[in-house]
Lab assay of single mutants.
Amino acid sequence: QVALSRTQVCGILREELFQGDAFHQSDTHIFIIMGASGDLAKKKIYPTIWWLFRDGLLPENTFIVGYARSRLTVADIRKQSEPFFKATPEEKLKLEDFFARNSYVAGQYDDAASYQRLNSHMNALHLGSQANRLFYLALPPTVYEAVTKNIHESCMSQIGWNRIIVEKPFGRDLQSSDRLSNHISSLFREDQIYRIDHYLGKEMVQNLMVLRFANRIFGPIWNRDNIACVILTFKEPFGTEGRGGYFDEFGIIRDVMQNHLLQMLCLVAMEKPASTNSDDVRDEKVKVLKCISEVQANNVVLGQYVGNPDGEGEATKGYLDDPTVPRGSTTATFAAVVLYVENERWDGVPFILRCGKALNERKAEVRLQFHDVAGDIFHQQCKRNELVIRVQPNEAVYTKMMTKKPGMFFNPEESELDLTYGNRYKNVKLPDAYERLILDVFCGSQMHFVRSDELREAWRIFTPLLHQIELEKPKPIPYIYGSRGPTEADELMKRVGFQYEGTYKWVNPHKL
């Protein structure tokens, strides 16, 4: 086992960053958080920038500027975001240094004079007029057009580079997404736009490419001749908990499936790229999406959770019991969808996408189930092999396979070949997804960000279904809070070829 401390991990990262040409360590950078008073800024962006600063992973002359409508001070920003920093008493001095680099400007999102004030403020910072500028839009999409237009007109660096990070949702359907994309691309070049999907920053999602293309053993079996089906799962054990009003506007397909799960599907299904260059990788992902037809209604199961009468606390409440959810809402909190990649490698292999709230566990994984062994000599005792990439929690890679049961006879039983990170790298604290992705933006690497043509294809696949749901308002199937979801989803999976045995229990190697 390799035991690495946080300091050692960050030392390795620093070495990698400083050796590259793309990370300008000594240049002045300004990180501007648009929507600095909001939840995302408070819980994710400010803490992430602090962790990067604490670990010495930001360029040395980096300033952080918050911008929002609320009249706040840096002290206010500190008060609301610091509880999420997880700072230790030993880091007190470092924390003071961090907040000394912070400033805040209040202004409207659609007022040109406010942006001119913001620009004057940035120019007044040390070497601010020639600094590289990175704008993070932690804002609702309704203000994107006004904000990007004003940034472009008043706040661009004339000497350094300018980059803009856009948070999902990128529209509600193909038409609104196209409108937003066309607007942003009329102001910024594609190499300046970073559409963030934080799932692409997760260690195991990034590991998929290495697993596939750096190991000879997987190449020959990664196709329709050997793989019976692919299941991509995202499960949350909690409901909307008072935030249903926002969720109800989008629903589970827009929230998770059309982005996170579809991105994971691309990494499983794509061909080997010409290189690890950002556009070479994204070219292959677009090719996969172009091979997927629009979702067919007979390959869809929609569910909505109801309270568990035997549960406790939140578990007793259904989705419609959330006071922020519109009365009688038919918005799905669970969806199972089957897609097919219609190309030579994957023809006929079902890709089953499942996601839901208020389920029995927290889990995100990719599961490849292989065909049955031909010419069975073990009297149907063999179960199908599976390769599982567990994204969260407890990152893991393992192969479910058959071995001989101890004893006199040739009785096979299920076991696993474990390729888990935790076994080799004991207690290594890896940077989280937002840390990686923000560092990628500083480096100018777009590999783990969504390109406009990729986004367009993703919406093309799901828009007809979303429009049909909005028009017909089908009643989702009720499922109990804390269950596996509607049984109809299991029946759909069985119908397209997935075999669920229920006889195997994964042993978490992190707890051995």
Rank of each mutant, 00 (worst) to 15 (best):
F378D: 04
Q499G: 12
K363L: 06
D310P: 06
E454W: 03
E395T: 07
Y500W: 13
T276H: 08
L339H: 08
D279I: 12
D490W: 06
F410G: 13
G497F: 06
R327H: 12
M402D: 05
C266D: 06
N298A: 13
E361K: 05
Q304C: 06
R254F: 02
D376Y: 06
D418T: 01
D347F: 09
L339K: 02
N298M: 13
R362Y: 07
L465Y: 10
Q304I: 01
V441S: 14
I389F: 06
G485V: 00
E342W: 09
L387W: 04
V341T: 04
F351W: 06
L267A: 06
E271Q: 06
R354H: 06
F334L: 07
N423L: 13
T276N: 10
C355V: 09
G502R: 08
F409N: 13
A358E: 00
S445A: 14
K287N: 10
L368V: 14
R367S: 03
K285G: 01
F370E: 01
H448Q: 08
H260P: 02
V373E: 12
K357P: 03
R495E: 12
E414F: 11
T331Q: 14
V507A: 14
S293V: 06
P431H: 12
G328M: 12
F351A: 02
N423Q: 12
M408C: 05
E491D: 14
P323Y: 11
S275C: 08
H260V: 03
Y305Q: 01
K272L: 06
V306A: 14
R484I: 00
E312N: 14
N277E: 11
S415L: 01
K272Q: 09
T324S: 13
A358T: 02
P474I: 11
F410V: 14
V256M: 08
G482V: 00
V391F: 01
G311W: 08
Q380D: 14
K405F: 14
E314G: 09
Y504P: 05
E344D: 08
K405P: 07
V268F: 07
F442W: 08
E395L: 07
Y504F: 05
L339M: 12
A332F: 02
L353H: 03
V428R: 12
L261A: 09
L339I: 09
K473E: 11
G422K: 14
E271R: 06
L455K: 03
V286Q: 08
R384P: 09
I469Y: 12
L289C: 10
E312M: 13
N343P: 03
A332I: 02
D418V: 00
P486F: 03
R484F: 03
F370C: 06
N308D: 15
T399I: 10
V306E: 14
I438W: 03
L261N: 00
Y434N: 05
S452G: 14
D372E: 12
D432W: 06
V325F: 03
N343G: 07
R456E: 07
A332R: 03
A374L: 14
C291V: 13
E414C: 11
Y340L: 10
K404D: 04
S293C: 09
D372M: 05
R362M: 05
T420E: 13
G356H: 05
T330E: 12
L267S: 07
I389N: 03
L437D: 04
A489Q: 12
L320D: 05
Q446M: 09
K426M: 09
L465V: 11
P486N: 03
G313V: 08
K317G: 13
V295E: 06
V301L: 08
Y398K: 01
I253D: 05
M270N: 02
L465M: 11
L368Y: 05
E365N: 05
P323N: 14
T324Y: 08
G303Y: 04
E294N: 12
E312F: 13
L267V: 07
T316R: 15
T503I: 09
A458C: 08
L417E: 07
L455N: 10
D283V: 00
E491H: 13
G318R: 06
V337W: 06
R495Y: 13
F410A: 15
V397I: 14
K494R: 09
L262R: 02
V301N: 06
L302M: 13
C443G: 12
Y305V: 07
L261S: 03
K272F: 06
I253V: 12
S278I: 00
E454H: 04
E414R: 07
Q296A: 15
Q499V: 11
K400M: 01
V366A: 07
W506F: 07
W459P: 00
V338Y: 06
E344P: 10
F449G: 05
V397Q: 00
A433F: 04
S275T: 12
H260F: 02
K473L: 10
D321Q: 08
E395C: 08
N423P: 14
K429R: 14
T316C: 13
G313D: 14
L339P: 07
E457A: 10
V397W: 07
F442Y: 08
I438Y: 06
V306T: 15
E491L: 10
A336D: 07
E472D: 13
G485L: 06
N299M: 11
K285W: 02
T463N: 10
V391D: 04
P326R: 06
P326T: 07
R484V: 02
L368K: 04
C355M: 05
K357W: 04
P464I: 07
E454D: 05
Q499A: 14
N427E: 13
L267M: 12
Q304A: 06
T399C: 14
R484A: 04
P350W: 01
Y479C: 02
E342Y: 11
R367N: 02
I480V: 15
Y481W: 10
R282T: 04
G407V: 06
H448F: 03
Q263N: 04
F334V: 02
Y319F: 05
Q468S: 13
N423K: 15
A433K: 00
P326I: 07
E361M: 06
R362H: 11
T503K: 14
A297T: 15
G311Q: 11
V337Q: 14
N360W: 00
G318A: 14
E361A: 08
N423A: 13
H467G: 13
E294W: 08
P350A: 00
Y481V: 15
R436H: 06
E488D: 14
P486A: 03
V306D: 12
A336M: 12
R367T: 02
G407T: 06
L339V: 12
K272V: 07
A332H: 06
R384M: 04
K473A: 13
C382S: 15
G303E: 04
F449V: 03
K272N: 06
N360Q: 06
V325S: 07
I377K: 06
Y398A: 01
K383C: 14
P393Q: 07
H379E: 13
S445C: 11
R451K: 03
H467V: 08
T333L: 02
E488G: 09
L430K: 11
E457H: 13
E361F: 02
Y434R: 01
D440P: 01
T330K: 13
Q296G: 12
E491A: 12
K494Q: 13
Q392V: 03
S275I: 05
Y481I: 08
D440W: 06
K475G: 11
I292E: 07
Q499P: 04
